[in-house]
């Protein structure tokens, strides 16, 4: 691959373009977000980070598939390098099973990398009072561990600021798996809203909710209307990164 050429500044009314350069072999421009995904047959409705309609800007996807002779870490690094070469300004994950590769991928490319919503746990907790908790909703409680926090470069003490609720006892949520071809979205929403209500009842000092599972992110607004708390997820994290890496000039009045 040739040398990467990237223009971090905006092109707008105040820009004068002269001689321009680009990366050899780059097919796409104008898509700031690169998203790593693992194979799955699950539905992708708006609000899920694997649905491009969830974002107010263009995104690109790259699959992470382990093959004979290529372990999943190498596959993730290759996919990230592909996205970087295509002009991605930051790389995130659309699946929840890549968190352990965060550091390895971040150290392999020249753009910022955030491979799990868990990366944003400290971003939420820093704005809360000491006694407030962040409630994480995930499919399987066992997947959220101190190890996972460490691989996301989140200091361990943040683990104790979180309470984790999972899909235990539900019909649809608990059965979600990449090989499943479909489910009733309204039933899933009802189940997730029940979990939120239970969490709010049992945890009076809740300062916010974080959705770790991509399949429940489409319900963020419903969740917020039930709990009246900040709701964090991959989309909120991605929108934040977009604001920083696609810095625009401000226009208006004063």
């Amino acid at each position: 691959m040739s040398e990467l050429v990237r223009m971090w500044g905006p092109v707008d009314a105040s820009t004068e373009l002269h001689e321009m350069y680009t990366t050899n072999g780059q097919n796409t421009t104008g898509a700031p977000a690169g998203i790593l995904v693992t194979p799955s047959y699950l539905p992708r409705i708006p609000g899920n980070p694997v649905c491009a309609e969830s974002f107010g800007y263009q995104v690109m996807y790259a699959g992470v598939v382990a093959q004979e002779g290529v372990d999943r870490c190498e596959a993730a690094i290759d996919a990230a390098k592909y996205l970087e070469h295509e002009g991605a300004r930051y790389i995130i994950a659309g699946s929840s099973d890549l968190a352990d590769l965060h550091s390895a991928v971040a150290n392999s490319v020249s753009v910022p990398v955030y491979l799990s919503t868990i990366c944003s746990v400290p971003w939420a907790v820093v704005a809360m009072g000491f006694e407030q908790k962040l409630g994480i909703i995930t499919k399987d409680r066992a997947s959220i561990s101190k190890d996972m926090f460490r691989s996301c470069r989140v200091p361990e003490e943040y683990f104790d600021r979180c309470v984790v609720y999972d899909s235990e006892g539900t019909d649809v949520f608990a059965k979600l798996s990449p090989s499943m071809h479909g489910y009733n979205v309204d039933d899933l929403r009802d189940e997730v809203l029940s979990i939120v209500k239970k969490m709010c009842y049992e945890q009076p000092r809740l300062g916010g909710i974080m959705l770790e599972c991509p399949d429940i992110m489409p319900f963020a607004a419903d969740i917020q209307s039930v709990c009246a708390l900040p709701v964090f997820d991959t989309i909120v994290m991605a929108d934040y990164l977009y604001k920083a890496v696609c810095k625009k000039h401000y226009y208006g009045y004063f």
Binding site: I45, P46, G47, C51, A221, P230, V231, V236
Partner: peptide, 10 residues
Amino acid sequence: GAVARKPYYG
């Protein structure tokens, strides 16, 4: 982004 969530359409 976290405190003003809107439903998705698309």
